[in-house]
Design a protein around this nucleic acid. Structure first.
Length: 261
DNA sequence: ATGGTGGTCCTACCA
């Protein structure tokens, strides 16, 4: 089984890049974030012709939006709202074998890491609290995977400079603490760090706001794949497709690829 | 301390 998560930053604009990714990886399931297309404009035929007849889409006009594309049928699908907002940040499917798969697009949180001065940061923290409550409340679930652009780089070597990013939204102590708490609540295993030691730098995002993204490699690991402990022994391989950042007209995020039995 | 680029949609907003 091959699973991919990718913040595509506009599905319609980057459908050709999705096609290239499909040709190169042949994933069974693809979780997308920031599709930036409302459901009525969703490129249904384009996605199906890539070999994905089963689609969950949860979009809105202009912003956000997630989708799950699958070669396997869904036993159930269930997009969900968070923070009492209909802002298209989540989708969940059950795959054959009762594999539970959740796809999240956590709010980025704006520029100022202070919930009193910045409502976007307050929204991000509230979203994380709701995720925590959700995973704490549901029974210990097996065969469960959660992926997405979580907009937090939790570990010291998930950012290019731990010291310089301590006060930068995505790597502040309060965000890291809340994400770590969610991880504990769901007993999640970080499927990528399962294969890559924590002292090794690892990024999935490089800002557009740099004339040369390769210079000094100033990235962050914002995109994640977590699995429940029962799946840990099934994990085969995980990769972050850094090379995709050098594609023509790229997303600022690259795909994370997981192989498992 | 500041501004840098790229997406949607049409005037700013968001990343």
């Amino acid at each position: 089984m091959r699973l991919v998560t990718w913040n595509i930053n506009s599905l319609r604009l980057r459908l050709p890049l999705l096609q290239r990714l499909v040709q190169e990886e042949q994933p069974d399931v693809i979780c997308l974030q920031e599709i930036k297309v409302q459901d009525s404009e969703f490129p249904e035929e384009g996605v199906k012709s890539l070999g994905y007849p089963h689609v969950l889409r949860h979009g809105m006009k202009g912003y956000n939006g997630v989708a799950i594309l699958s070669r396997l049928e869904f036993l159930a699908k269930d997009p969900q709202n968070w923070c009492a907002k209909d802002d298209s940040r989540h989708g969940r499917v059950i795959l054959p074998g009762d594999l539970d798969l959740q796809n999240f697009y956590v709010p980025a949180g704006g520029d100022i890491p202070d919930a009193k001065k910045n409502v976007k940061f307050a929204h991000k923290l509230q979203f994380l609290d709701e995720m925590n409550a959700y995973f704490r409340k549901r029974r210990t679930k097996q065969k469960s995977i959660m992926v997405g652009d979580l907009n937090i780089a939790p570990l010291e070597h998930d950012v290019w400079s731990h010291k310089q990013l301590l006060d930068v939204v995505s790597h502040t102590p309060i965000e890291v603490e809340k994400l770590t708490s969610i991880k504990k609540a769901g007993k999640w295993v970080d499927a990528v760090r399962h294969f890559v030691p924590e002292d090794q730098k690892l990024f999935s995002w490089w800002s557009y706001r740099s004339p040369d993204w390769t210079k000094n490699d100033r990235g962050r690991r914002l995109d994640h794949i977590w699995v429940t402990p029962d799946l840990q022994k099934s994990l085969k391989r995980a990769r972050i497709r850094k090379d995709m950042r050098a594609w023509a007209q790229p997303s600022d995020h690259v795909a994370v690829v997981l192989d498992f039995d």
